[in-house]
Amino acid sequence: MQLTVKLFAFFRDGRFKEEGREYPAGTKVGEIVADLGIDPDEVGVVMINSLQSSLKATVAEGDNLAIFPVIGGG
């Protein structure tokens, strides 16, 4: 299945800003994060089609997935 993945902040470093990507049906957000080489502990907000979601959620054909890192400094 095809979906659009959008990365934010330093998650773009060495990766991409927005890309159409192919994954098997039933793929979970956490598996996409792993496929992209992102440390899951660094993941903050995850959104599927503009709704807040989680690493455990399953994506579907045509979904827009947005992945933000934790920003923690003060």
Binding site: E42, V43, V45, Q52, V70, I71, G72, G73
Partner: peptide, 17 residues
């Protein structure tokens, strides 16, 4: 809570950002 889904992330960045 939404921005920091797990406070365990504390240990993920032991060095100051």
């Amino acid at each position: 809570a939404g921005l920091y889904p797990g406070a365990v992330q504390e240990s993920a960045t032991p060095s100051p950002p």
